[in-house]
Design a protein around this nucleic acid. Structure first.
Length: 865
DNA sequence: GAGCACTGC
């Protein structure tokens, strides 16, 4: 079997959000549509009115135009009418309170590259690590040199993740103040909770303190991060501080990239990786200390990890190698963590951000603002800020989704026509995950002279990326959140109010470089009504995959799991029913409230996919279409492979390209066709590149041509390059696991029935029957639920009698995403079996709820399995 | 006729 990656390591692209200091272009962002306005606003110096102008729709597709127009009409009165009102009512608007964030008595916090501060006086009894005096080899030259395809990726990774500053000269950090106390506490407590705001230096310094406290002598220090970028960048930062290379004493391990060696003492990892490691070695004996960073984010993985580690600590206490646990969090909900970890010691570290002035907009007082339309309010507020704040202060706006963002971007670009001649040009820059990477990069480019950048973003800019130069934040107070309706197995995507912590986080984005301002498009009274913290992910997601992993770790009764926020009983039961129906677990005969993993469930655990997807892979083995199933399942793990390059194409073209891969059988087979076409393309390209290399073409031009060819292919076929790459790497990962599981690589050729049968068997809970009268589909396991095929599906028009889908999403309607045509006979027996199981299950859950209610006062005593 | 954000051996 040929298993070479379609994306060899030497062809890996640079990380998405690396800010390239040399890549400054003074060209105005084409998306902003403001180049015309620049001329009119600056060169002519004439203030244009909207009235006589035809609205400009550059780079906006016809559909978007319609939507934007609709939105525009809704947003009356017009901007021009309200402008004066807004300006005269500024005092009313700024009825917020100046919020002083503690400033540490330090010189201006500077980025390491510009810092000239001498090293802080040594207070620690232990020596500080040496300061490297040599600039790192990669700093002056970004990675442009090309290794041969056969060279290992390890070296390149190290180079790639070297930070771009000349030499290490760490500025003083707030955490230095409590260094001695921390050293003492580390030595005397098994579990430690460190509360520190952004900029305290805890993520980089605490692991080093652990090493200096001798904790690394009995095993490595694991640091878990919720995001891959964080793990990678923290590792390279700490490596520099310790005067070593990434992969030496300091390393990182994220999915697809492991930069650790036997020498590694500090390992930055994503929390998911640590969970996976725990599945293989439940006591995590390689680690003396586990540090959970960003615990306040309450990601599913970190919550589960805390639960596992607590158990692990108990077990290892008995042996000679106790496990030390450090939980690091930003919010002041310390007591919650403290009581969870049996009254663990809490150390507070002050943060270091610049002061941020917070203003609340009150539509009741200020009539310029709409009481409900936050999109309209955003435009009004940007205009106000633009006319009143000093030039050069960029604005970051938080909205909920791409449609709103594009609408505001359009309106802001149009606003340029009505600005006074003296004003700078507003340069709107949309930013959301579904945007193509090239477009995303616009947000990080330097703002041109005579313009003000307004980045209009989803919550991607809240934690995942940091944009330099932002001095003003405008917070709509809204966020789109996906919750899981366990009773019906539906994902619900809805706009919610942000939490107080989230509002604070958003405001903080204005104070990264200098003192900032935050305008909140909601009143103080509304703010007081917001939740304190974000809802933990574990309370709003499908628990089946998590439970399967925990069962692998030996958990038998999920109802007795000691999680920091236990999920609702019905959510737990729904996950147990799902796993039972999929054949992954079975109730124990001795005690029906306990479950055990089946052999099939044990296999499911090995694959990093959801249990139903794992079941598809499992059945593909019986059907003889393992290769195809792996390709489809891998493609299904990324969102929207078809999402690239649509901006420059018109609707007809988009439609034509989509049709090219469409099949009668549905979206999964469409995905397969796409992947197969891609494979062919890469085979050809690799052959050509190898041939070119033999004829002595330089590596640099080889790489350039290679990347150009990929880009063209993706653009021509409307494929998202990044997602394609991810899918390809997941494919390799799944193949590797299949090899380890000794699964024979069967293929079904053009017999797509086999693959459809596997999909139906794996995801039978998602099968539907068409109801001609209602013109909707009925979910076969629960016919009361009716739904539509999402318009993005190639079956949305043909409406076959029976289908199976990947995901059910409730937005404005209930939509089935990724749909395949099936034969009802494939799923009918499975469904009747499931119904029987559900009846029994319901009876049992009712009984269990009764038991819990009866024993409510004693419940605290209940121990974990 | 429509699209929050992350993430996993």
């Amino acid at each position: 079997m040929h298993l070479k990656s379609k994306f060899p390591a030497w062809k890996k692209k640079k990380r998405k959000f690396r800010i390239d200091k040399d890549g400054i272009k003074n060209k105005i962002n084409p998306v902003s549509q403001s180049s015309g306005a620049t001329q009119n606003g600056q060169v002519n110096g004439v203030v244009r009115q909207n009235g006589g102008q035809e609205p400009k729709f550059l780079n906006v597709t016809a559909k978007k135009k319609k939507r934007i127009k609709r939105r525009k009409n809704k947003n009356k009165p017009s901007l021009l009418q309200t402008e004066k009102e807004l300006l005269t009512s500024t005092v009313q608007m700024t009825n917020g309170v100046l919020k002083k964030i503690q400033t540490i008595s330090l010189s201006e916090p500077s980025s390491p590259s510009t810092s000239s501060k001498p090293e802080s006086p040594q207070k620690s009894p232990l020596p500080r690590p040496k300061t490297p005096t040599e600039p790192s080899p990669s700093t002056s030259t970004p990675v442009t040199s090309v290794a041969s395809p056969s060279s290992t990726s390890q070296n390149r990774n190290i180079l790639r993740h070297e930070p771009n500053f000349d030499k290490f000269d760490r500025p003083q950090l707030p955490i230095d103040v409590v260094e001695q106390q921390l050293m003492y506490e580390l030595a005397s407590h098994e579990t430690l909770i460190i509360i520190g705001e952004t900029g305290s230096g805890k993520s980089t310094q605490v692991p080093q303190l652990c090493v200096r406290a001798g904790l690394a002598d009995s095993g490595s220090i694991a640091v878990t991060e919720p995001r891959r970028v964080a793990a990678v960048s923290l590792a390279s930062r700490v490596a520099v501080e310790m005067g070593t290379d990434v992969g030496g004493i300091v390393g990182f391990h994220v999915r697809f990239e492991n930069a650790t060696t036997h020498k590694t003492k500090i390992e930055y990892m994503t929390d998911g990786i640590v969970l996976r490691k725990a599945l293989i070695s439940p006591l995590l004996e390689n680690y003396s200390t586990v540090i959970i960073d960003e615990a306040h984010e309450r990601s599913l993985h970190s919550d589960v990890l805390m639960c596992i580690l607590k158990k692990c600590q108990e077990q290892r206490r008995k042996g000679k190698n106790p496990l030390r646990l450090i939980v690091m969090s930003a919010t002041l909900q310390a007591d919650k963590f403290q009581s969870y970890f049996d009254n663990a010691k809490v150390v507070l570290v002050s943060g270091r951000t610049f002061p941020i002035e917070v203003f609340h907009v009150n539509p009741k007082i200020n009539k310029s603002f709409s009481s409900s339309d936050y999109v309209y309010n955003t435009v009004i507020c940007v205009k106000h800020v633009h006319l009143n704040e000093p030039k050069g202060h960029d604005i970051l706006v938080f909205l909920t989704g791409s449609e709103e963002i594009e609408a505001v971007a359009y309106q802001l670009a149009e606003l340029n026509g009505s600005l006074p001649a003296s004003a700078d040009v507003i340069m709107p820059v949309p930013l959301y995950a579904a945007l193509r990477p090239e477009k995303q990069k616009e947000a990080f480019k330097k703002t041109p002279q005579g313009a003000r950048k307004v980045i209009i973003s989803t919550n991607i800019a809240e934690t995942s990326v940091t944009i330099p130069g932002v001095r003003v934040v405008i917070d709509s107070g809204k966020v789109k959140i996906k919750t899981f309706e366990a009773s019906n197995r539906i994902d619900v995507l809805k706009v919610h109010n942000v939490s107080k912590a989230q509002a604070k986080q958003r405001a903080g984005r204005a104070g990264r470089d200098a003192p900032g301002k935050c305008y909140r498009l909601y009143s103080r009274e509304d703010f007081q009504k917001f939740e304190i913290d974000n809802m933990p992910e574990i309370l709003r997601c499908n628990l089946s995959a998590t439970f399967l992993e925990l069962m692998k770790l030996g958990m038998k009764n999920p109802h007795r799991l000691q999680l920091i926020d236990p999920p609702k009983t019905e959510n737990i039961d729904a996950a147990l029913l799902e796993l039972t129906s999929l054949g992954a677990i079975r109730p124990l005969n001795s005690d029906k409230s306990k479950f055990a993993l089946t052999d099939m469930g044990d296999v499911f655990c090995m694959y990093p996919v959801s249990p139903d997807h794992a079941r598809v892979l499992f059945h593909a083995q019986k059907e003889g279409c393992v290769m195809e199933a792996i390709k489809i399942i891998s493609a299904m793990q990324t969102d929207a492979l078809f999402s690239g390059g649509s901006d420059s194409k018109n609707d007809a073209e988009v439609e034509r390209i989509r049709r090219k891969f469409e099949t009668r059988e549905g979206d999964h087979i469409t995905l397969l066709k796409l992947v197969l076409t891609t494979n062919l393309f890469f085979d050809e390209l690799n052959k050509k590149t190898e041939a070119d290399a033999r004829y002595g073409k330089s590596n640099i031009s080889l790489e350039r041509e290679y990347n150009l060819a990929i880009r063209k292919f993706c653009n021509d076929n409307m494929i998202n390059e990044q997602h394609l790459k991810t899918a390809s790497m997941i494919e390799e990962q799944l193949k590797q696991i299949a090899i380890e599981q000794e699964v024979p690589f069967s293929t079904c050729g053009n017999d797509f029935t086999k693959i459809r049968k596997s999909l139906a068997t794996g995801m039978f809970l998602n099968s539907c029957e068409y109801d001609r009268q209602e013109d909707r589909y009925r979910l076969m396991i629960n016919p009361a639920i009716t739904l539509k095929i999402h318009p993005s599906s190639c079956l949305s028009r043909s409406k076959p009698a029976y289908i199976v889908f990947s995901e059910l999403m409730k937005t404005n309607d209930l939509y089935a995403l990724q749909v395949t045509l099936i034969d009802v006979d494939w799923v009918r027996p499975l469904i009747s079996e499931h119904k029987k199981m559900r009846t029994n299950h319901l009876a049992e859950s009712a009984q269990r709820i009764q038991e819990i209610t009866n024993s409510a006062p004693k419940r605290k005593k209940a121990k974990t399995e």
